[in-house]
Design a protein around this nucleic acid. Structure first.
Length: 477
RNA sequence: CGGGGUGUAGCGCAGUUGGCAGCGCACUGCGUUUGGGACGCAGGGGUCGGCGGUUCAAGUCCGCCCACCCCGACCA
């Protein structure tokens, strides 16, 4: 790894991204095109994401279950828009046990259909509702162009699927989970996402409305980082999910689904990373702090190591790693842990033994600027405070960066210029033609109609027609 | 699927007119080192993408095939 410099973000952002995934040992390429192996460090990060989300899901009354990977082909075809949306990217199993199957099975690209089928069996009465089930699993979508974490043929995610007796309640659920994602992204990932509704062209295949959290990456491109869908009665009608209501009348239920995937790992990488490597938010980092012992010879070593052990025990409440590998210089270790994005480094050397101190180096401020010497007394408190400060600083920095790259674009010229250097926030008349024109001319797509609307009316930045809502245009992943 | 490119050690590459398959990093062992990417010595590691052809002789020349990457049409 020595002398193995990372390509700077400014030189080639996507190359920077590819290298960081490899060098930080988050993932590696699998033998099948477009598939990735999530390595232990990357998976540990995902596990922390899972834990933070799962806690929130449980707190709002959801329970976990597991539905099968294989789905009868015919299920996909029951909802017209759904099959049209997913047909081009299905992996299909045609043989089993050496025999041609009577009906092909698709590897789930998402589980609305199979879960809808099961829900139709389970739902009889309003007393059975709501159903609030989440599933942690993997799905397969045969994508053309793939990128580690951002778009792979197979990816890991959670998908929540709920059933409600009223449209109001289902809509509330859709919005509640959007807010849950927002809370998670901002407070755990320090990723300042914008909540909003997708346009009709960008919404999920089969949904009435789709809601999204959109993050701005450090190349200013947008990343859809989580979605929540309101289905109305679309899937209930396709899968015959009916219940007897309070008046003993049979009616279709209202359903939702919401998902967040390993793509969020990509969001973290591209929101916080710098030219030294990954920077992980303390709350999600697999290793929150690494202790690097420093010594010149065996005498110093026997002096330093007991103090390292004391410090480790003092910091046992955190996710700590002691890098006691022999034969590597401290400098080498610094670079390696910086590449892996560990938020805080603790150095313990002979001088520290003498002075009852340690050196703390924060990852978000590289070099001398982020290095301070603190007393070993009360170290657990200074470390806790510093981790909180780093978490807050990452969010503040990312928010400032995002806000600096959002442009209020009033006309078409401003819009086309804005999407070359960031996001455009513009009045939009609501027509798909205007979206298509922007995409054709600039490759930028509509990201979302943000929840925070200015109110009033304006002129569509594309066609000049009256508009009542503002929408974000951006180049996206 | 259209346009461009690349396949030689784990990674990055060199390989001249066809003539012993190499270099850097990484890896193993020993020794010296260690507060911002240490150094020396000694080692291990190859179906040169695949198949076929030309030739005394092919990494190199010819043909076919395959894979991957980049750029255009789809997307959590």
């Amino acid at each position: 790894m020595a002398e193995d410099k990372l390509t700077p973000q400014s030189e080639n952002f996507s190359e920077w991204y590819n290298q960081i995934v490899q060098k930080a040992e988050l993932a590696d390429y699998a033998p099948v095109r477009g598939c990735m192996v999530v390595r232990p460090y990357g998976w540990a990060l995902w596990e922390n994401i899972q834990a933070a989300l799962d806690k929130r899901f449980k707190a709002s009354g959801h329970v976990n279950a597991a539905f099968p990977l294989l789905i009868p082909m015919s299920f996909l075809e029951k909802e017209k828009e759904h099959v049209e949306g997913f047909a081009p990217e299905l992996a299909v199993v045609t043989h089993g046990g050496g025999e041609l199957l009577e009906e092909p099975l698709v590897v789930r690209p998402t589980s609305e259909t199979i879960i809808g089928y099961m829900y139709s069996k389970w739902v009889k009465s309003y007393r059975d509702l709501p159903i609030l089930i989440n599933q942690w699993g993997n799905v397969v979508r045969w994508e053309m162009r793939t990128r580690m974490f951002l778009r792979t043929l197979e990816f890991y995610w959670q998908e929540g699927h709920t059933v409600h007796s009223t449209d109001k309640e289902a809509m509330e659920e859709t919005r509640r989970m959007l807010d849950t994602y927002h809370d998670f992204a901002v407070n755990e990932g320090a990723v300042p996402v914008i909540r909003g509704r997708k346009s009709q062209t960008e919404k999920f295949a089969g949904a009435v409305s789709s809601w999204t959290i959109e993050g701005m990456m450090r190349d200013t491109r947008a990343l859809q980082s989580g979605t929540s869908h309101y289905f109305g009665q679309n899937f209930a009608k396709a899968f015959d999910i009916k219940f007897l209501d309070w008046n003993n009348e049979l009616q279709y239920a209202y359903t939702t689904s919401w998902g967040l995937s390993t793509r969020f790992v990509g969001a973290i990488i591209m929101t916080h990373g710098d030219d030294q490597g990954l920077i992980l938010p303390p709350r999600l980092a697999p290793t929150q702090l690494v202790i690097v012992p420093i010594y010149r010879d065996d005498a110093e070593r026997s002096l330093v190591m007991p103090v390292v052990e004391q410090v480790r025990q003092k910091l046992a409440a955190f996710r700590v790693h002691v890098d006691d590998r022999d034969g590597l210089t401290p400098g080498f270790k610094y670079h390696e842990w910086e590449m892996r994005g560990v938020p805080l480094r603790v150095e313990v050397g002979p001088k520290d033994v003498e002075k009852n101190s340690v050196a703390l180096a924060r990852r978000d401020q590289p070099g001398k600027a982020g290095k301070t010497f603190v007393s070993q007394d009360g170290l657990e408190h200074s470390v806790a405070a510093l981790l909180d400060e780093i978490q807050a600083a990452l969010l503040a920095r990312a928010t400032a960066f995002r806000d600096e790259h959002i442009y209020d674009a009033k006309d078409y010229q401003e819009l086309t210029e804005a999407v070359q250097k960031g996001w455009a926030l513009s009045w939009w008349c609501g027509s798909a033609e205007c979206e298509a024109k922007v995409k054709e001319d600039t490759k930028a797509t509509t990201r979302c109609l943000p929840l925070d609307q200015p109110g009033g009316t304006g002129k569509c930045a594309v066609c000049g027609q009256p508009a009542t809502e503002k929408i974000y245009f951006a180049r996206a992943y």
